[in-house]
Design a protein around this nucleic acid. Structure first.
Lengths: 135, 135
DNA sequence: GTGCTGTATTGAAATAGTCCTAAAATAATA
DNA sequence: TATTATTTTAGGACTATTTCAATACAGCAC
């Protein structure tokens, strides 16, 4: 946890609670696209009294403030991604793993979206990851 | 419901139950990416005794047989798409509507996915649809 | 530091979506 | 028409998520 995180939270007028700081610290640099449960499990040793609601509340706030992104790649649960810069994903049909794809793609906005306010796009690759391919 | 649907189901060795036929008919040509609940609600007048499990069972079979696709665009529920040909989507942040994008994109497979077996990709645009833009 | 105030956390229960199971129903076949 | 294997049904189980009221506590003024 760096000082600039503390300052960032202050600027956002969020109270610096230990649970929040731990959740942010856990997410920071995390490339595993964790679910709420994974976050909860990772922190419950340090915060045995922490409630699931706190994890959800915090994640909601962080998404609102734009510090993390909520991924809609997995239809069974929400996943969260601290990397808010534009990037893409590969999802393995076998194990469900989600991998970052750092390439940038040149995509033209199709004519059919003329009247739409397109703000972002995401490329989701599907297939089989190297580990699952071996089996 | 056309005869070729009936033949298709026969070839797949699926029993032609009224519920199944109704679900297939409802999905056919449907561009709203309906959820299981929407399908259930749309048909419950005609099939008051129909169970939710039937909807899920049928959808599962249809996905297995490749007649429809399951979309993982909405993190709150599964959505189903009868259009199995390659196409993309726009999702409105305001109303959640999912719109088909028929364009085809030239995407290179990035070097970082060298060892991955990439089978498909999907472009998901996000932003605001014309209706929500007005508000 | 002490006290105040509004925000955050907690625990439990409510809700929503999906899936499971066993019994009853029924489509397909002979 | 009888048989059989598949499908539907009803209800409950299960998981993920949200809500709620009560309690705790971070930040601020003094």
């Amino acid at each position: 946890m760096q000082n600039n995180d503390l300052n960032l939270l202050k600027e956002l007028r969020l109270k610096l609670t230990p649970q929040r700081l731990a959740i942010i610290e856990y997410l920071k640099g995390n490339k595993n696209h964790p679910s709420a449960e994974e976050i909860y499990n990772a922190l419950k040793d340090r915060f045995p009294s922490m409630s699931f609601a706190t994890v959800y509340n915090t994640l909601e706030v962080l998404v609102e403030k734009g510090l993390i992104k909520e991924l809609s790649i997995d239809s069974s649960k929400k996943r969260f991604d601290p990397y808010t810069h534009p990037h893409h994903h590969f999802i393995c049909k076998a194990c469900g793993k989600i991998v970052d794809v750092e390439a940038s793609f040149e995509i033209f906005i199709p004519e059919s979206l003329r009247d739409f306010q397109v703000e972002d796009f995401q490329v989701v690759f599907t297939g089989v990851c190297p580990e699952c391919k071996k089996e």
